[in-house]
């Protein structure tokens, strides 16, 4: 025969088990976007970019509003060479973070990969207007020009970055 005290302890233990089982389940139901983002990050780190992109998009569709999500989504599409989709993500992010010049450089890089060199160079020009002489921007400008076969212009910029005469 179970004593009332033991019954009480059993009841406590049962309730605790129930809590342990239901809390994670409830959390994943309520915060699906966070869970999806976390899983997408894991896929990204494991180099499973197809799965990562799908999960980032799902997190976005669940209403997650986090600049990191858009940046990662753009990066993932970039790795998958889906440049239009990458541009879409980075442009949305650019609206949220208009002062982020590094993001603008990334946008220029994707434009260049998408064979939109004029747009890429225009973005770099705008960045250099805001931060004249910024070597990182100059280097990306040189890289974009070189990609387009404009070697001489690119070479001049490289010499400028290195502080040497051509």
């Amino acid at each position: 025969m179970v004593s009332p005290k033991s019954r009480q302890y059993l009841l406590f233990a049962g309730l605790l088990c129930l809590l342990l089982a239901t809390v994670p389940w409830a959390y994943t139901r309520i915060h699906q976007d966070i869970v999806l983002f976390h899983k997408a990050q894991q896929s990204f780190m494991a180099n499973d970019y197809e799965k990562a992109a799908k999960r980032y998009r799902m997190a976005l569709a669940k209403g997650m509003d986090n600049p990191r999500l858009l940046e990662r989504l753009g990066d993932t599409h970039l790795v998958l060479e889906e440049f239009e989709k990458a541009l879409d993500a980075f442009m949305k992010l650019g609206q949220q973070k208009p002062e982020d010049l590094a993001l603008q450089l990334k946008l220029a890089h994707v434009y260049s990969l998408n064979n939109q060199t004029d747009k890429a160079l225009a973005v770099i020009d705008r960045v250099l207007e805001k931060k004249p002489g910024w070597e990182t921007a100059l280097l990306w400008q040189a890289r974009i020009l070189a990609r387009q076969g404009r070697f001489r212009e690119a070479i001049d910029i490289y010499y400028r970055i290195l502080g040497e005469e051509p």
Binding site: E135, L139, A142, R143, A146, F151, A154, I155, Y158, Y159, I161, L162
Partner: peptide, 9 residues
């Protein structure tokens, strides 16, 4: 890195 890219170009 810049010098390497310049040398290649």
């Amino acid at each position: 890195q810049a010098r390497l890219e310049l040398a290649r170009l």
